[in-house]
Amino acid sequence: MSFQVERGEFVSIVGPSGCGKTTLLMCIAGLNPPSAGGVVVNNVQVDGPPPNLVLVFQEFNKSLFAWRSVLGNVLFGLEVRAKLSQDAEEEARKLIKLVGLEGFERHYPWELSGGMQQRVAIARALAYGPEILLMDEPFGSVDALTRLELEDGLLRIWQNLGTTILLVTHDIEEAIYLSDRIYVLSRRPSKIIQTIEVDLARPRNQITTRAQVKFMELRNEIYKQISQ
């Protein structure tokens, strides 16, 4: 399989469970060496976690630092960039506000719901200031309403910060709603069976965008491909 993501794009990969989506992201993030082939980020061959790239894990609850508060977790993203200064805390607070967690700065991860924890993980990743954000089923374990909220939040952030986002999901509608382009993966042995350009107008809206005929056509097409 071979594919490309341009700077500033929002690209999704959809595929059935167990087709290796997570493994693919781990390879791109430089956390797992690929068994064959290679990954190139900013014209550099990946053989370790590339700078300017952060992966938001599917198991966000396991990736948060239990010994740090919400503010501490987000500050971590700034600390590792040695961007700790007077305004670091201010910047962290801004990001916490951006993901809608204002007022929870001093809470610890275990005091928050799943959806809130995931927002902490996203804010921490954004604090690192990555050019590229990889997201593994970021909204997989939050309730449906929170999910819609988080999708819109992510789109707002993406538009504000110009971050390149590659997202993996098994939710077809989520992929369509968020992305510029979608790569559809087959069951094992996985390969890209279709590339779909999503030319729905932005900014998107949970009601009007999802009600468009084109949205449903895309959904049906991808569904047909995946269930083959």
């Binding site: 993030a29 430089g30 992966l55 894990f57 990736s63 590792v80």
Partner: peptide, 27 residues
Amino acid sequence: IEPTLIDTGRTFGLGRWKILKRIVLPA
């Protein structure tokens, strides 16, 4: 220690010793 925590340190660009100090030790 949760392997995801180590991977978190790595994706944030930390080396082995920094992961030890900033993630493994507090965990």
